[in-house]
């Protein structure tokens, strides 16, 4: 059985600010990021679906010590966002001064764009990540 939503397809869509996920034909729940089986019921009966890319911040951290070759990115803010469709997804919180970010951002609404990690010598090529912006 083919992987229902390969990274390549997910990544190409994300680069156009479209977030793809999977709808389960058995339980109707959404899985995102993509997996082989439904997060809820483990069914393989999944279809690709376009998600809205909006949600609320559930938690955050500000990174000051980065991995090799990403030192020039610090400080930056990572957030876990609960998407309107249910799943949580990790991304970067952009267009904000990291030094001004505190616990009061938890619960705030965000909408999604993207930024591309160009990859490094250990990664299998580039990967877009959700870039989140405050505001409805």
């Amino acid at each position: 059985m083919e992987y229902p939503l390969p990274f390549e397809k997910y990544n190409n869509a994300l680069k156009n600010n479209t977030l793809l996920g999977l709808t389960c034909r058995q339980c109707r729940k959404i899985t995102c990021p993509p997996q082989m089986a439904c997060r809820e019921c483990a069914s393989f009966d999944l279809e690709i679906t376009e998600l809205g890319g909006t949600g609320t911040i559930q938690t955050y951290t500000i990174i000051y010590v980065a991995a090799e070759n990403r030192e020039n990115e610090v400080p930056y803010v990572i957030v876990l966002v609960e998407l309107e469709e249910g799943p949580w997804i990790m991304g970067e919180l952009c267009a904000i001064n990291p030094d001004e970010v505190g616990a009061d951002i938890i619960g705030k609404s965000v909408k999604m764009g993207n930024r591309v990690f160009p990859g490094d010598k250990y990664s299998n090529g580039e990967a877009a990540r959700p870039a989140f912006y405050l505001g409805d």
């Binding site: 991995a67 990572i78 990790m90 991304g91 990690f117």
Partner: peptide, 11 residues
């Protein structure tokens, strides 16, 4: 996760 979480800068 190398494809879905490290790109966001996760350490």
């Amino acid at each position: 996760d190398a494809r879905y979480e490290f790109p966001a800068g996760l350490t």
